[in-house]
């Protein structure tokens, strides 16, 4: 049973993923519009978390400006589809590409930086992107925001939350599949290599600059797509949506879920999208709860929620082993 695997995935992951997918496909028609909206938000958060996790969890580069790329994707998609009249299905990937290009330009100076310097630069980038959103009202609507209508598919406007939910679900699945294939590719292996040791990776002929840039570009692309979907899901965007709090929330997703793990991104994004809704009575304490959660997970669960399973199993087998050893000792005596 333990040898079972599908495309290199372990049995528990396959079963968990299949169950989750079934739920995601079958459950929504039974629920109301608010739940469809919430589920769509969770899916978009999965896209954001998967993208950030590639950069931070796999390639080991700290980023505190994921929400800036989300903003770039959101505003670009809205501008292209509303002001320039492009089809949404063309504007969305274009938004992703524009976000990826900005990721390239940020990644370029970031190549020489590591650790907290990178954190400072990305924090600065976030601040600048916020200011630019406010100062370019012609494109972004400034502080007053801009509305972003739902797209149409095959002549039908996806005005109901349920229909848009299924579209987002399809895109999210495609994203997860892309991320999964990427991480199994040589590029994905190179990400892991530069995270463990840049020097060792370089001696093994991993092109350091190229690999880091690739990580920045890919992660920004994912965030851009997520942002484009977010804009038309919510229907209205303003700079407040893309502040430092959003970036930190994305970091919380991947730390709580599990760094460097796609399953972790999915679990973290779902749990932390639903949790604030459950605890809505304590909305004022949200930052406090998220911060506390982050600290607890960092100190007690360095591998996040997905690290919990293996840790428990190890504990169980260990206690088995000790009891077996004790039994053997008893026999020997």
């Amino acid at each position: 049973m333990s040898d079972f695997s599908l495309m290199g995935l372990k049995a528990p992951t396959v079963i968990f993923g299949a169950a989750l997918l079934l739920l995601a496909l079958a459950l929504p028609p039974w629920f109301g519009s608010y739940h469809h909206y919430l589920a769509s938000l969770a899916l978009i958060n999965i896209i954001m978390a998967v993208g950030l996790n590639i950069l931070t969890g796999n390639a080991g580069q700290i980023s505190l400006c994921n929400s800036s790329f989300m903003a770039i994707g959101a505003y670009a998609t809205t501008y292209l589809s509303v002001k320039l009249g492009l089809s949404y299905w063309l504007a969305l990937p274009l938004g992703g590409v524009i976000s990826a290009i900005s990721g390239f330009f940020l990644g370029f100076p970031a190549l020489r930086l590591r650790g907290f310097y990178l954190a400072v630069v990305t924090l600065g980038f976030l601040e600048v992107s916020q200011i630019l959103i406010e100062q370019l009202p012609g494109i972004t609507g400034g502080v007053r925001g801009i509305s972003s209508p739902r797209p149409a598919l095959f002549g039908h406007t996806l005005s109901s939350d349920l229909s848009f939910y299924y579209v987002i679900l399809a895109i999210t699945l495609a994203t997860i599949w892309c991320a999964y294939s990427l991480l199994r590719s040589p590029t994905g292996r190179a990400f892991e290599a530069i995270r463990s040791s840049e020097a060792a990776a370089q001696t093994l002929a991993v092109p350091l600059a190229q690999t880091k840039l690739a990580a920045f570009v890919i992660s920004a692309f994912f965030a851009g797509i997520g942002g484009g979907l977010f804009a038309s899901l919510v229907g209205f965007i303003d700079p407040l949506e893309f502040g430092v709090w959003t970036s930190v929330r994305h970091v919380v997703f991947i730390v709580v879920g599990g760094l460097g793990s796609i399953t972790g991104s999915v679990v973290g994004a779902i749990v932390l999208t639903v949790l604030p809704e459950v605890l809505r009575a304590f909305k004022e304490y949200q930052e406090f709860v998220f911060g506390g959660l982050l600290l607890v997970v960092l100190i007690l669960l360095p591998h996040g929620l997905v690290g919990l399973g293996p840790a428990i199993r190890a504990r169980l087998t260990q206690s088995d082993a000790t009891s077996v050893a004790a039994a053997q000792r008893g026999v020997a005596e």
């Binding site: 931070t56 080991g60 700290i62 505190l64 590591r114 650790g115 907290f116 954190a119 930190v248 970091v251 730390v255 004022e284 304490y285 949200q286 930052e287 406090f288 998220f290 911060g291 506390g292 982050l294 600290l295 960092l298 100190i299 360095p302």
Partner: peptide, 17 residues
């Protein structure tokens, strides 16, 4: 350094709240 950055950010968030 990642843990330090994220943990101190979390502390800041809590203080701000």
């Amino acid at each position: 350094s990642f843990t330090i950055v994220v943990a101190t950010l979390a502390i800041g968030l809590m203080i701000k709240n």
